[in-house]
Design a protein around this nucleic acid. Sequence first.
DNA 1: AAATTACTCAACCGCGGGACT
DNA 2: CAGTCCCGCGGTTGAGTAATT
Length: 228
Amino acid sequence: MEMKEGKSSIKKGLWKPEEDIILKNYVEAHGEGNWANVSEKSGLMRGGKSCRMRWKNYLRPNIKRGRMSDDEKDLIIRLHKLLGNRWSLIAGRLPGRTDNEVKNYWNTHLNKRSSQTKTTTICSKNKKKLQQFPTSQPTRCKISENDDKRSQGRKREDITAVSPWIEHARSFNFDTEPPLFPANDALLFTDDEPFMPILDSLALYEALQSNGGEEYPQEVAGHATGLC
DNA sequence: AAATTACTCAACCGCGGGACT
DNA sequence: CAGTCCCGCGGTTGAGTAATT
């Protein structure tokens, strides 16, 4: 897996304007996809993933850059409360914004803010960080030794370590026990809760409805209302 | 003015999953 | 069915820069 990108000839680091032009021209000529071949065929010495990421987060048409509007902030907060860290889902509701941008924005602006006001919705990973660096700022600190140790042995198992809420979720029987929907959705979801597929479409529906009810797929609304 | 600290965000990495052979 | 390839996601890093001392 990812063998091709392990080659030493693959260039890394910030993209230069001329590389952007090459990639943009190539994608506009050949379309998106088949990223693995892009570097080879376009002459870029970049990995497929890097090309895809650059296109998706920066070069793609209709990318909206700059400050988040209040509406966007509000929607991010609302959707994050409901969906958790599913940035691509959240970004999908924000025209012109990318998952990376939403994720960065959350981590740098909103997470900081919420950690100041909320005490019960710190995700398990951040808990660890906060214990390590007892400030309200969850972003990285310049303690490179810790950083190195942190980056080593970074594995999925660490992330998916069983926590009490997962155990709780596992014990929840959706077949016989449909979830209740309190008026205050904060009671239903916290950052510490797992993704519950059965609630996903409803969560989106509710989030969007209370945000002015912009367009959403019919089947989502139907699914959601069907549950209610 | 220089050094240090804090912050932002583009980019990288590892992984899971679907498609294909 | 198993192996491989590719795509996309989410977590994390680190360079660049702003703010502070």
